[in-house]
Computed example of a mutant assay.
Amino acid sequence: MKILITGGAGFIGSHLAERLVEEGNQVVVVDNLSTGRLENIESIKANGNFHYTIGSILNRELMEKLMEGVDQVYHLAAAVGVKYIIENPLLSLRTNILGTENVLELANKYKAKVLITSTSEIYGKSDKVPFHEDDDRLLGPTRISRWGYSCSKAIDEFMALAYFREKRLPVVIVRCFNTVGPRQTGQYGMVLPKFIKAALLDQPIVVYGTGKQTRCFADVSDVVGAFIKLMNTPKCVGEIFNVGTTESISIEDLAKKVKEMCDSKSRIEYMSYEEAFEEGFEDMMNRMPCLDKVKEYIGYEPKYSLDDIIRRMIEYYEK
Rank of each mutant, 00 (worst) to 15 (best):
G186S: 13
L306A: 13
P170L: 01
G8H: 07
G189M: 13
T246F: 00
I314Y: 00
V103K: 15
R19L: 02
G69L: 00
V224E: 11
E315N: 10
V258M: 07
G186V: 12
N108D: 04
T179C: 11
T6N: 12
N88T: 00
I85W: 14
G13M: 04
Y188S: 01
C290N: 15
F217W: 13
R165V: 09
C176N: 14
L254W: 08
K194V: 01
C176M: 15
D127K: 06
P302I: 02
G36T: 06
A226K: 14
V171D: 09
S248E: 15
V224I: 13
V171M: 09
Y163T: 02
D222P: 12
P193S: 07
R267D: 09
L93D: 05
L139W: 13
I249F: 10
D127C: 03
E269V: 01
M288W: 02
L306Y: 14
V258P: 05
N49H: 12
F227P: 08
S34E: 03
M231T: 05
V29F: 08
D222I: 03
G48A: 04
V73I: 15
G211C: 07
K111E: 06
H75N: 06
N108I: 02
S14Y: 01
Q26G: 09
R165L: 03
E252I: 01
M271G: 03
V30C: 11
K109H: 09
E42S: 11
A9V: 03
A276W: 11
D308C: 08
N49P: 00
F277Q: 10
I240E: 01
K45C: 04
E121N: 14
M1T: 12
V73C: 14
N40K: 10
A77H: 08
D127R: 03
E101T: 01
I228Q: 07
R311W: 11
K125Y: 15
I173D: 06
N40M: 08
Y188W: 08
C236M: 04
K83M: 11
N40L: 04
I249C: 05
K256F: 04
I196W: 02
G148V: 03
K109G: 05
E101V: 02
V80I: 15
T214E: 14
F227H: 07
E101Q: 08
T210K: 10
Y317C: 00
Y208P: 00
N232M: 09
E157N: 05
D222F: 06
D134W: 00
K259N: 07
V82Q: 14
T35F: 02
M67I: 07
Y163C: 06
M190R: 14
L62T: 10
K2G: 00
Y316N: 00
L66M: 14
S34Y: 03
E68V: 06
N25H: 15
R215H: 03
I57L: 05
R183P: 01
N102E: 01
T246M: 07
Q203T: 03
V114G: 05
L98I: 01
S120Q: 12
L200H: 11
E239C: 01
E318D: 02
P204T: 00
R267N: 08
V171R: 09
P170W: 08
N40Y: 04
R165T: 01
E260K: 15
G140D: 13
P141Q: 15
S43P: 07
D71V: 09
S118V: 06
K229N: 14
P289F: 05
S221T: 12
E121V: 11
R165S: 02
H132W: 10
K194I: 03
R60T: 09
G36H: 08
I310S: 11
L306P: 15
P89M: 12
I122S: 09
